[in-house]
Design a protein around this nucleic acid. Structure first.
Lengths: 187, 187
DNA sequence: GTCTATAGCTAGATAGAC
DNA sequence: GTCTATCTAGCTATAGAC
């Protein structure tokens, strides 16, 4: 067997950036192959089911990323709630590059793709909400209140990314991150 | 000349529903033609520049709809602010069919089509924000405060539509409409 | 103004050499 | 495991009859 030209890790990062900016239907296998330095046929060797499998792998990567960089951090009772929130907000900011990047999740919520990836999308969003719910509880909120606010954080991030993109200014996203902070830190 | 089989109005409504659910890259000319009852070639007769022109026409329709059913109503000083808000919230609810429908604007901020439709998207969102800013001012807010809240309404609607879609429940959207009401009506 | 037919192309996917 | 070459289906877009 020949040696791998590209590690799986680098592969996924390249693939994700294409899907993130062009969406599922907008990303051709040529685009995807070019982003990795491999040929189309080689991509099929790694992902026999083609674009669907590639996208699913990207979503698995995102799921893991969210678990590590959001959910677990927010749930870590060894850290003060203030500190947890601060770090996670920074992570979210970095993930979307300050609001420049489109969210992979949004890119896949179109009708034709929901059948394919709906379960993975739901899981990632559910985990995100669980993380922020844990944070709210640590801040002394009731579980019900914490859940409502947690859902709100997801809505604010997703919504502000759209508005930022369409209005070509990063301010709405940045302001929403601030609003999330204030939601928890001030009364 | 033969008679038109379909009026322009009916044409646009069919076309919009396809683009709304499948996105720009996800909508083929066959999809678009089928949704209208015309053949592909007939669509080209009505929209010589093809899919781009079709999409642009849909966005013009949306722009007009927003102007009439949101911006103008919110700015109408003959009506009490409470009343204006109530009616507009109902209109938004109907537009998205309670949260079932994807927003055309979102569908087009996605696939790297911003080069093609960015200006129209920006205009529609700007108008939306102007409308709600006028409402806020009528409620006694400062212009600055009103503008911030207006932008917030757009973020909440867009964000909650995504979350509703992904989580397959209409609750986030419905709760966000309520939150918008409370944003203006309660202190 | 609408249709059928088709050109020309690019998409996703596969075969087989190395 | 990666490559070149190629298949077929679907795409956008056009030509021309009615």
């Amino acid at each position: 067997m020949r040696p791998q030209k590209v590690t799986n890790q680098n592969l996924i990062e390249g693939l994700m950036s294409v899907i993130q900016s062009k969406g599922y239907n907008g990303s051709s296998l040529n685009d995807l192959a070019n982003s990795t330095g491999l040929q189309k046929a080689s991509l099929y060797h790694r992902f026999p089911k083609g674009k669907k499998e590639i996208t699913s792998a990207v979503l698995s990567f995102v799921e893991e990323w969210v678990d590590i960089n959001i959910v677990e951090l927010l749930s870590d009772k060894e850290q003060k709630p203030n500190e947890r929130l601060k770090i996670v907000i920074e992570n979210i900011d970095n993930l979307y590059e300050g609001g420049e990047k489109i969210c992979v999740l949004r890119a896949l919520t179109m009708d034709n793709n929901l059948d394919l990836f709906g379960n993975q999308l739901k899981k990632i969003m559910t985990n995100w909400i669980i993380g922020f719910t844990n944070l709210g509880i640590s801040f002394g909120q009731s579980e019900k209140e914490a859940k409502i606010k947690a859902e709100q954080t997801l809505i604010l991030v997703q919504g502000s990314l759209i508005v930022s993109k369409a209005m070509s200014t990063l301010k709405p996203f940045q302001k929403s991150l601030l609003a999330i902070k204030n939601m928890y830190m001030s009364p």
